[in-house]
Design a protein around this nucleic acid. Structure first.
Lengths: 191, 191, 191, 191
DNA sequence: TATGAATGAGCGTTCATTCAT
DNA sequence: TATGAATGAACGCTCATTCAT
């Protein structure tokens, strides 16, 4: 119990520091301090900084996927499922800005070398869902017949950019704006 | 003359190293070595590493804008001008992958703190052009009536993501694919 | 009983690790792991690492002396007793290479500060035996009249060097070679 | 000029500290301090601690060999040449106790892994001289017909042990004692 | 008695920056 | 102007030791 608490506090501390100041701005000593833990303690739970960073990423990714799956209803129309995914990503990261900043930095760093975003279409559950949704849409002639990477970029490129702007304080997205935006995303992949 | 050459070689060296290995992978000593210049010399041209990084970014941005302006024809239709801009960004960064990697890293780092992307709509020439184009499109009822940031995200979000994938080797974009993609981008902002 | 087993396994573990990897290559955690014992347990049996190392040395020394005494026959001639001691040391360490490596490292480290080799002539049983043998040989005009340290160095210097070479794999000593070698050692102290 | 002085002071500092306190007792910060040099400076001259230690060893070995060669006269009889070598080693290390302690520790550590004492018979000048001397002695039926390693051990084992005792203060060797000792060493390899 | 999570001083090393030449 | 030797703060990480269970 207690041990899991320490592990979790270390991860929280790392999440905050790295999200706010980047990997360099988050020395292990500072992570330890913010977690109210001795430096050595971190090394009981994580082999080294690299491992901490990767484990943290994987945990955050897991949480995101769980959330998206919770909102995803196989019975809905393709259109509705797309809108639901877009809405989900936007609302999840709006509620979890640190996680957005962290994941963004993670992808933009050598840490993600073995775990590139092309994973998005790998055989993980998340990858499968998205891939199947795209293929189903293409088959129904609802979605343009373009490569998956292109469809992905059209779908999520704008959303990721907007989330960034929102988290940095350049926009505030209200509900009607969000609906208009995700409709626009759909417009770009719709036939 | 000669002095300008040194300055330029330092910047080239920094560009390559940082684009390929990130800011951490580019210590000043290595930048100097790759530029065939003494370490101290860098500090004659740039106050410190921070300054070098910022100056380099500004230079790269300037080159990009110049290129885009060269391809931009005020006489063209709004539609054509959008397509031209999209095409321009895609082709410029396809030809200059190091610059793409550099700028991407720059935005994703504490170095860009004072120079946020909201500059895109500031009073620089580039900002003005893009802003005017969006406003003109909205006025003509050709473009959706959405905030500029949203329109920007819809326009360039997909393109930036695709460029990344292409540079990392996950896709290869041929001309017809490019045309389809930029049409799709236009679809998302078109009424 | 069981407690003694733990103590003994800790010592075995320390012996192996230190003999093979040196004092630095044998952290307490590793000693504990190899002994299938909790880290804390070591500290029940030994005050600290220093104590463990010293106790281990003393135990190994005791075993060696016991072995040498077993082969030592007061009734033999001085000459025979010398040869028997030389033979004993060679055969004991050939059969116990880890113990040789351990003791060698021990003497060559700050750990042995309080327990220098001059002990060899102290009032321990071993010291007494060797001292008496040298003195008896000198008195019988069989051994050169030299200081005890010198006689000791002449006797055992070559043997220790050879053992080292053998354990490291540079020589293999067979029985005839051993006999020739110990005769040569005797030649150096013989009148 | 000045640069070479710093390099040399770093080596002197390392020599003293390591000889007196061992490799662990000589942290880089202490080496730097004793050399009146910044920590970073050490790393200009030596890639890392390992390299410093190895370079230092090689330098000390070079000095020793030079000294021994200076005292070695090809025209002398085999007997005289042996005595001269023994005398040389004894007097060199008596005058340079730190170097003795350093080299002793070096051989007894993982640092010497790639540079084992079997080098003594390799094709370095030193190795060649000693090897030739042994072979010549054997051929002249002056020296026992034993493997080189054994002859080496008989010759230098006692001397190294005695030097150790002397440096630690357990004996003081005067000239007559030295002469008797090296004669005894010769006795062990003489036919 | 036995455990191992927790600790933090201390290590080797890096690197942006300075300054005498 | 150009250099690179010199610096030391700061980093990631190790490990002997403690102590609550």
């Amino acid at each position: 119990m207690k041990e899991e608490r320490k592990r979790s506090e270390i991860m929280q501390s790392a999440l905050k520091l790295i999200a706010e100041k980047g990997f360099i701005g988050a020395p292990m000593a500072m992570v330890a301090e913010k977690a109210n833990v001795g430096i050595g303690t971190i090394y009981h739970y994580f082999k080294d900084k690299n491992t901490l960073i990767n484990k943290l990423y994987m945990e955050l990714e897991g949480k995101l996927i769980k959330f998206l799956e919770g909102n995803y209803n196989e019975g809905d129309s393709v259109r509705e499922r797309f809108l639901q995914l877009y809405r989900g990503v936007l609302s999840y990261f709006t509620d979890h800005p640190l996680e957005f900043r962290y994941m963004e930095q993670y992808f933009n760093s050598p840490y993600s070398i073995d775990l590139r975003r092309d994973r998005i279409f790998d055989d993980s559950r998340e990858g499968t869902i998205l891939k199947k949704l795209f293929l189903e849409g293409v088959e129904q002639k609802f979605i343009k017949d373009l490569p998956l990477v292109v469809l992905f970029a059209l779908s999520f490129g704008p959303i990721l950019l907007l989330l960034r702007d929102q988290i940095l304080g350049f926009v505030t997205l209200n509900d009607t704006l969000i609906e208009k935006t995700i409709e626009a995303c759909l417009d770009s992949i719709k036939r």
